[in-house]
């Protein structure tokens, strides 16, 4: 019995036309569970095909065609875009982006785990705290980034307060440094780290911790041997959710880093605007996608196979 099975229709009052078609369609579907599955999957599949798969294919194709004079591509085939990427400048950019993404992920994990842990143990304040974690998403990312500029400027809130309180004479140069870029990225992506870890911790059976305690484990040992391993799936998922978008970030480094460094996201953006080099931009995007795929592969390997409790 599936949701699509309908009870037999008695000879009731005649309904609107088109009802017959619907009934026939449902009747056709009823004995075909595979067709049912595809029908339900259809909207999502069409969306993915149209707005993801097709553009990726187009991008792939562009990356191996010669560039047009004023942008766009000319017909033909060349791997010039990919060989161009092997120039040390671009490899450095890739490496720098990668390092930044890793740093963001590590910092987010260090900052996010305690937050998730506290929320999971906060009893009746749970909903409120979760709401506060998600609240920043209600404002635009750009607005939040500008807010950080106002905080970190030489004449911004933090420095003004420090000088007014007499703790410093000169402002601390916080903006347009690697610190500000990292701070902006961690701030922006922290909820993506907190929520999966929280979900993982929530599922933790408190009896397990009691059992560990009776077996002789002090609080630190309980954390190390029970809580941490069992929240690992959430932690890994959170790392992935932070790492992948921060690989593609470019706004944050532009606004908070003073546009003094190029990340792969900036490079790709340049190719499609100023440089009018679509094939190269497509190739860079594709290479970035490969890096992401590699990360996903690592995740699939790392995830403990049997402990799929919800993740």
């Amino acid at each position: 019995m599936t949701a699509l099975d309908m009870p037999p229709q008695a000879a009731g009052p005649r309904s609107a036309p088109g009802n017959g078609l619907r009934r026939r369609a449902l009747a056709w579907l009823a004995p075909r569970p595979q067709a049912q599955a595809w029908t339900l999957l259809a909207p999502g599949t069409v969306w993915m095909l149209g707005f993801f798969l097709v553009p990726v294919i187009v991008m792939c194709a562009y990356s191996v065609m010669p560039r047009g004079e004023y942008g766009g591509v000319d017909p033909g085939f060349t791997i010039e875009a990919y060989t161009r990427f092997l120039h040390p400048v671009y490899l450095t950019i890739l490496e720098r982006t990668f390092v930044l993404a890793v740093a963001t992920t590590v910092l987010s994990a260090l900052a996010g785990y305690p937050v998730a842990y506290t929320i999971a143990r906060s009893g009746r304040w749970k909903s409120l705290l979760l709401f506060l974690v998600v609240l920043p998403f209600w404002t635009s990312f750009l607005v939040r980034t500008f807010a950080m500029i106002f905080l970190m400027r030489d004449t911004g809130l933090i420095n003004s307060w420090l000088i007014a309180a007499g703790l410093r004479q000169e402002p601390i140069p916080m903006l347009y440094t690697p610190f500000s870029v990292l701070a902006g990225l961690v701030y922006g992506y922290l909820p993506f780290m907190v929520l999966p870890i929280y979900a993982s911790l929530e599922k933790l059976d408190p009896a397990l911790l009691e059992a560990a305690e009776v077996l002789g484990a002090r609080p630190a040992a309980r954390f190390r041997r029970v809580t941490l391993p069992l929240s690992a799936p959430g932690l890994i998922a959170g790392c992935l959710l932070v790492f992948i978008p921060s690989l593609g970030s470019y706004l944050t480094s532009d606004l908070l880093g003073g546009a003094k460094e190029l990340l792969i996201g900036n490079l790709v953006q340049n190719q499609f605007s100023t440089a009018r080099n679509w094939p190269f931009g497509s190739a860079a995007s594709f290479i970035l996608m490969i890096v992401v795929l590699a990360a996903v592969l690592v995740y699939l390997r790392l995830r403990p196979p049997d402990t799929v409790r919800g993740w």
Partner: peptide, 20 residues
Amino acid sequence: KRPYERQIAMVFQNYALFPH
């Protein structure tokens, strides 16, 4: 005294075996 300071052992209702 905390549980780990007592000379006891316990079997829990749902066994509480460490799944990992």
